[in-house]
């Protein structure tokens, strides 16, 4: 037998090795199966059902009635709240995402200092994120209460004027109130934790080298911290945008979409159509449109990320 032939030949594995591989594979799939069943039953199943329903008229009580593209045509041509709610939602995300990223990064940098009590501070910063959204909406509803809320009390005390915002009752201020409420939960939440992990992963020798080169704090931040954090920033940004575009609970509890549709976000529009007007087919069509918008938006972000995200371990 030539060397070449020997190299190309497949050497049969001993039987006990094959059995072990099969057992490992089965064990792997068994461990995987709860998640797999979960995603099929609770994600893919409802998605497929929703996709089917989007072409039907379905009021929960009667069987779905196939209507073709009628729901989609009505959404784009007759729905008075479709475009306004879409625009409002993007406006909200445009403000909330950058603010929460900057805020969370700032908080993470502060909490990354080796000071006494840092663990306590990290806990305190994370607490708002643990507060249920309904509880936090009720709390902020009181804080923003136009008459007896502490914020307006301070505004009146400081300015000496009785003119203070109406917050959740005022179309001009309701969105601002929801943004402030979102910031409270976002700055110290998961975003901050991920930034914190990212910061702790920046090699110290890069900072040492920068110091040798005469870099100050700001230069180190711009030339070491930010570039090394770009994967983390990108990750947080993608999740932040998706999360912000899905805004629902706070508006549902605090403002019910008002006043004067000032906080009528897209998810609220879907919910209202589905669970208040019982137009499940129409709401499914709304949801699928939103899915495609989010999909395209996320795809573009990934494409763009190649230009500015730096992965230290990446091989070109």
């Amino acid at each position: 037998m030539t060397t070449k032939a020997m190299a190309g030949a497949r050497i049969p594995l001993p039987r006990w090795t094959r059995n072990l591989r099969a057992k490992e594979a089965i064990a792997g799939y068994i461990f995987l199966s709860p998640w797999l069943l979960g995603i099929i039953l609770f994600i893919i199943g409802p998605m497929m059902t929703s996709g089917f329903l989007s072409f039907t008229r379905y009021d929960v009580v009667n069987p779905p009635d196939f209507v073709g593209l009628k729901n989609f045509i009505e959404i784009f041509t007759k729905d008075r709240l479709f475009w306004p709610s879409m625009m409002l939602t993007f406006r909200y995300a445009l403000i909330v995402v950058p603010l929460s990223l900057v805020g969370a990064l700032s908080a993470a940098m502060l909490l990354n200092q080796a000071l006494r009590g840092t663990a306590w501070f990290r806990t305190f910063f994370f607490l708002p994120h643990l507060t249920p959204i309904v509880a936090s909406a009720v709390l902020w509803g009181w804080i923003f209460n136009a008459d007896v809320g502490p914020i307006n009390h301070w505004i009146r005390t400081i300015t000496g004027s009785d003119n203070a915002p109406g917050w959740f009752r005022d179309p001009d201020w309701a969105m601002t109130g929801l943004i402030i409420m979102a910031m409270w939960g976002a700055i110290g939440g998961n975003t901050m934790l991920i930034f914190l992990a990212g910061l702790q992963g920046v090699p110290q020798e890069l900072y040492d080298a920068a110091v040798v080169d005469g870099a100050g704090l700001w230069a180190k931040f711009l030339n070491v911290t930010i570039p090394m954090l770009t994967p983390t920033i990108f990750f947080n940004m993608v999740l932040g945008i998706i999360g912000a575009l899905k805004v629902f609970a706070a508006a549902f509890v605090a403002t019910q979409g008002g006043p004067a549709y000032a906080t009528w976000f897209y998810a609220l529009h879907i919910y209202t159509r589905a669970f208040q007007y019982f137009e499940m087919g129409y709401a499914s069509a709304l949801a699928w449109i939103f899915f495609f918008v989010l999909f395209v938006f996320t795809y573009v972000q990934f494409r763009q990320s190649r230009r500015w995200v730096y992965y230290a371990g990446e091989v070109d």
Binding site: A146, D147, R169
Partner: peptide, 8 residues
């Protein structure tokens, strides 16, 4: 009262 002027 405008929206926000009277909470209750």
């Amino acid at each position: 009262p405008a929206p926000g002027d009277l909470e209750n």
